[in-house]
């Protein structure tokens, strides 16, 4: 049974994955839900033999966890607009927030562009290859003729620059107003 490899790894790895999901912050029943849907997906999707199967399962668990979290926030927003549409009740809409959101998004873009322009060219190129083009570190290292750890240093530098610029931006534009936070949390 060459195609049941992942499922065979999944069953013994289940306790580890449960621990991992709990460590990531999943509630006990949420973690169980995620593992159950993983089991179903694995049973029906028949992948070929995978090397590093536990890494595959950890990654899958992470994806499911994030989809769960981000999906919750989206669903809540959708439910609200559905209620509005069904009840025929016009929620008092203040046009200000959406204009402000647009403004913040464009400021965010401007800020990121500034950070990237300020980076050493090689750092920016490595970041682009990794983050935009999805090229693995090992391949970037081989293509540029440098070590994997050098690639990772460039990437850490690029991400740190972005993080720092963002922190500064958040402090200046007030709390809880960043696009990143909309993904995970619910705003009233």
């Amino acid at each position: 049974m060459p195609d049941s490899g992942l499922l065979q790894t999944f069953l013994p790895a289940r306790p580890e994955l449960l621990r991992f999901l709990r460590l990531r912050g999943a509630m006990p029943d949420e973690a169980e839900d995620i593992l159950q849907s993983m089991g179903l997906k694995l049973a029906e999707q028949e992948t070929g033999p995978v090397d590093q199967p536990r890494a595959y399962l950890y990654r899958m668990a992470t994806n499911e966890f994030l989809l769960h979290r981000r999906g919750d926030a989206r669903r809540r927003r959708r439910d609200e607009s559905w209620v509005d549409a069904q009840s025929g009740f016009m929620r008092e809409v203040d046009p200000q927030p959406s204009a402000e959101t647009v403004l913040i998004a464009s400021q965010h873009l401007h800020l990121l562009q500034g950070v990237i322009t300020a980076m050493p060219e090689r750092t920016a190129t490595i970041f682009r290859l990794f983050r935009l083009d999805g090229v693995p570190q090992k391949t970037i290292a081989a293509d540029l003729g440098i070590s994997v750890s050098a690639v990772e240093k460039h990437l850490a530098r690029a991400y740190l620059d972005i993080l720092q610029a963002r922190k500064k931006f958040d402090e200046e534009s007030g709390p809880a107003r960043h696009p990143a936070h909309e993904q995970g949390h619910h705003h009233d």
């Binding site: 935009l132 991400y159 993080l163 696009p179 990143a180």
Partner: peptide, 20 residues
């Protein structure tokens, strides 16, 4: 989680960014 959210937030901006 903070690092992950920061990285995720780049998704919407990435296609509009100019790289050297």
């Amino acid at each position: 989680a903070e690092v992950e959210a920061m990285d995720h937030a780049l998704d919407s901006a990435l296609p509009d960014l100019h790289f050297p």
